[in-house]
Amino acid sequence: MALTDTALKALKPRERTYTLADERGLYVEVFPTGGVVWRYRYRLNGKQEKLSLGKYPDLTLKNARLKRDEAAHAVAMGESPAQQKQLAKAGRAAATTVAEFGEKYFREIVARDWKNVTLPRRYFDKSIIPAIGSKAMKDVSAEDARSIIWRKKEEGFDAAAGALRGVLKRMFDYAITCGVATVNPVSALPMRHVHKAKPRERTLSPAEIRTFLRAVDESNIRRQFKIGLRLILLTMVRKSELLLARWEHVDLDAAEWHIPVEHSKTGKPHIVYLAPQAVELFQQLKRLAGGSPLILPGRAHPEKPFAHNAINSALKVSLAGQDIPAFTVHDLRRTASTLLHEHGWSSDVVEKALNHTIGGVRGIYNRAEYAPQRREMLGFWAEFVGRPSHQEQTV
């Protein structure tokens, strides 16, 4: 008996998948999840084949019958509609460009697995798209990937080159899963040949801190970066936390900076207690922000933050020609931690100020926030950082 619209609307899922026939090979398959799919069964050259036509109710009974009739005509001409569909699908996949598939990858994988998509998105938009965005995924070669990655290395950013390789590698892994590519061109470029991460141990001595701050103040980098570098040292925050910070998160009267969950690496909100020196730096940034909601608004787009590497570059420029071993922005956090520990501050207080997650049993049972101690410690730290060189030995 042929199906009717009334019968289709009344379909209910069961524990197991079942089918209901219409006529001339057309039928619906009903899944336990409630999904309903139109299929057409036919024989060609003595062999039974099956063709998926679409989902009900998106594909109505009337239109499903029309698609069945089109497929039946192909069968009568000795053609396989199922094979034609596979060839058409393969053709679309073969023509998929890097730009097109990248959007799918970010929508389906990155948005699901990454808490903060800013960095992978920036690598994709700034490095991958300009180089191979219009190229079909299947045509991307190992040389294409090498060229993109090595360009970043030649700029002096080995760690960024490694991160860029990671974005490309994972995107092509997913492309293979989706049938858009058959090989991963990045597999020919082992990470050990791109960037080998080393445990960092660099900390600045008190004398190096003075040299660093003097070099920053005397450099020609943007005023916002001069303040930002000093603020990272005083507050012990991560670079990304400052770049993403908004004025709505800062209460200068209470001398508190509230870092929301979405900006925190630990996935938990964090409060930074501001010493008077830090409050003054925020006040300077407020005047420079020009009404932007961001604490460090980008130069061209006040509604968007500076690029992730902007402060790195500013530090590199300010240290050029200085008699001080190289260090990174992140090393400022390690420096603060090391010197505060050396001056007797509790490890729990220091770790909480750094917004670190304390592991093990202590981390499970110790829920203390140490607010008064952190406020006192950050006040001491700001005084210590601003202390003239001749007073270092009196600490």
Rank of each mutant, 00 (worst) to 15 (best):
G162I: 04
A163Y: 05
A163S: 12
R165H: 14
G166F: 03
G166L: 05
V167R: 03
V167M: 02
L168E: 01
L168I: 13
K169W: 04
K169R: 11
R170M: 01
R170N: 03
M171E: 02
F172Y: 14
F172W: 13
F172K: 04
D173S: 05
Y174C: 02
A175I: 03
T177L: 13
G179L: 13
G179P: 14
G179R: 11
A181C: 11
T182C: 08
N184R: 10
N184G: 07
P185F: 00
P185Y: 00
P185G: 05
P185W: 00
V186I: 12
V186E: 00
S187R: 11
S187L: 14
L189V: 11
L189G: 10
P190D: 04
P190W: 07
P190I: 11
R192H: 15
H193I: 12
H193A: 13
H193E: 15
H195L: 03
H195Y: 15
H195G: 03
H195R: 04
K196S: 12
K196G: 08
A197C: 07
K198A: 10
P199D: 02
R200T: 10
E201A: 14
R202M: 08
T203K: 14
T203D: 11
L204C: 14
L204I: 15
L204D: 03
S205Q: 12
P206E: 08
P206K: 11
P206H: 09
A207D: 15
E208M: 10
E208I: 13
E208L: 10
I209R: 07
I209V: 15
R210Q: 14
R210W: 01
R210E: 09
R210F: 02
R210M: 06
F212K: 04
L213V: 06
L213D: 08
R214G: 08
R214T: 15
A215N: 05
A215D: 05
V216T: 07
V216W: 00
V216N: 01
D217I: 02
E218A: 10
S219F: 09
S219E: 06
S219A: 04
I221A: 07
R222C: 03
R222Y: 11
Q224D: 08
Q224M: 06
Q224R: 01
Q224H: 02
F225D: 00
F225N: 00
I227V: 09
I227T: 01
G228V: 03
G228R: 00
G228Y: 00
L229V: 02
L229P: 00
L229M: 04
R230A: 01
L231E: 01
L231Q: 02
T235Q: 03
M236V: 14
V237K: 01
V237C: 06
V237G: 01
R238T: 12
S240N: 08
S240H: 05
E241C: 07
E241I: 06
E241R: 08
E241K: 10
E241L: 09
L242F: 03
L243A: 01
L244K: 13
R246E: 14
R246P: 09
R246D: 07
W247A: 09
W247H: 15
E248W: 13
E248N: 12
H249A: 13
D251Q: 14
D251P: 15
